[in-house]
Design a binder for these strands. Structure first.
Length: 417
DNA sequence: TCTGGGGTCCTAGGACCC
DNA sequence: TCTGGGGTCCTAGGACCC
């Protein structure tokens, strides 16, 4: 059996832990730029605030009903999430942290009669130790645990451990679009073919599903039947990509303005790579127009460039990101969003310490010129080879020299291509 | 006027090799 | 010179998740 533990309106609950005045009140947490609702308390849901609702559309409603609208604080949520997740090993050695507010627990060795008690215990203990209310759904597969969890949430009963006959009636009442793994496009396709409920999907022919919708949906069908097909993933995988992307508050047409936005995203994301001890094998830049707009011409373009060797070195990331930008930019569109995506991440430790004879001389020369372009204001760029490592840096100009500011060095990660 | 940000996985199709 | 099939690798794009 599997349990899915899901925090109730997680971001709002985190805010309530530190601000008890918010308890019992309608509360909404807004996305970056206060664009739309990303977490709502039950009271806010009852007032009709939809998930993802744009703030400008419910601002008046919020004012009228004294809804607390908060900007998001991801540091806080990340911290609270770690506290909650670190508790689960008391119930199972198999814990998969699935998202910031959800975890799957493998409950292989638990006798069936103890499942309900375990669910209750998880709810009570997590609430007591962290202040975060959670719901627990238990089922024979991860997909069915999700279904049970949704029931627990809807009924506000904390834990839900449906019997197999109860599962069938839950699936009858569950529209396909609510199933884990079935999104908007797949639901439409299924509805067009008269598959409207989870039960309809469970009872459809797997070969036909596989032929038309691929293995992922086939797995979902099997899971609905009670056959586990989606394994627990207890060891956090190495991250594969890292992105920095933002919507602009308005439409942007100017090439220079977009270019500098991309440049600053590239700097931010390479700094984040360094903070996390990672380096990237390539960079991808994308631009898109406002897909909400009916009259604007639509464009979404992206361009990916590999680095000769993995890097997290700002000047180099910048150089490639801007090169990609130049390829992807088209004049005459009104842009709404831009992003810089770092791909093929590797730990920096694997990257450093590469032997000097594997360093490409051309790359060294190119880096010199990148340094030259970006950091020349600090002084003279230098490359330094020692002990099999390459370090790039710059020596400050005389006028910049001060007792606390002498020579700046930046480690240059070097990896196999 | 104002509509998030950060991820993963799968597949089809092209390039290339034998 | 033309012909063919099978395998692998890579990438872009689409779909999904929270």
């Amino acid at each position: 059996m599997y349990a899915l533990v899901d925090c109730n309106c997680f971001f709002v609950s985190c805010e309530r832990v530190f601000n008890p005045r918010l308890k019992g009140k309608p509360v909404v947490v807004l996305s970056n730029n206060d664009g739309c609702a990303i977490s709502r308390s039950d009271e806010a849901k009852a007032l009709g605030i939809a998930m993802g609702a744009p703030y400008f559309k419910f601002r008046n409603l919020a004012r009228k009903n004294n809804i607390f609208c908060l900007s998001s604080n991801y540091e806080l949520y990340g911290d609270m999430s770690r506290r909650v997740m670190s508790m689960f090993d008391r119930w199972s050695p198999e814990v998969e942290v699935y998202s910031i507010d959800e975890a799957f627990l493998g409950l292989r060795n638990l006798p069936p009669e103890q499942l309900s008690e375990t669910a209750r215990d998880i709810c009570a203990t997590v609430k007591q130790w962290t202040g975060i209310p959670v719901s627990v759904g238990i089922g024979p597969t991860k997909t069915l645990a999700k279904v049970a969890n949704e029931t627990a949430k809807r009924e506000k009963i904390g834990g839900c451990v449906p019997s197999s006959s109860e599962i069938s009636s839950l699936l009858t009442a569950l529209p396909v679009e609510k199933i884990w793994g079935i999104g908007r496009n797949l639901s439409k396709w299924l509805h067009d073919r008269d598959i409207h409920t989870a039960l309809n999907l469970r009872d459809s022919d797997t070969r036909w599903i596989r032929k038309h919708l691929g293995v992922s949906v086939e797995r979902t069908v099997m899971e609905l039947r009670g056959t586990p097909c989606i394994p627990m993933d207890c060891h956090p995988k190495d991250q594969k990509a890292m992105v920095h992307a933002r919507s602009f508050g308005r439409r942007v047409e100017s090439r220079e303005e977009l270019r500098s936005a991309v440049a600053s995203y590239a700097e931010l994301v390479s700094a984040k790579l360094r903070r996390e001890g990672l380096a990237a094998g390539g960079v991808s830049v994308y631009l898109s127009t406002d897909f909400h707009s009916e009259q604007d011409a639509q464009y979404h373009g992206s361009e990916t460039l590999p680095f000769p060797v993995a890097t997290n070195f700002t000047p180099e990331v910048l150089e490639y990101a801007l090169k990609a930008f130049d390829k992807v930019f088209r004049r005459g569109f009104r842009y709404k969003k831009a992003g810089v995506l770092m791909l093929a991440l590797v730990p920096q430790t694997e990257v450093q310490g590469e032997l000097f004879d594997q360093v490409d001389r051309n790359k060294a020369a190119r880096l010199m010129s990148a340094l030259d372009g970006v950091h020349i204001r600090h002084g003279e760029p230098l490359l330094h080879f020692a002990a099999g490592n390459m370090t790039a840096g710059w020596k400050p100009r005389k006028e910049n020299r001060s007792p606390r500011y002498t020579t700046c060095w930046m480690e240059l990660p070097i990896a196999r291509a």
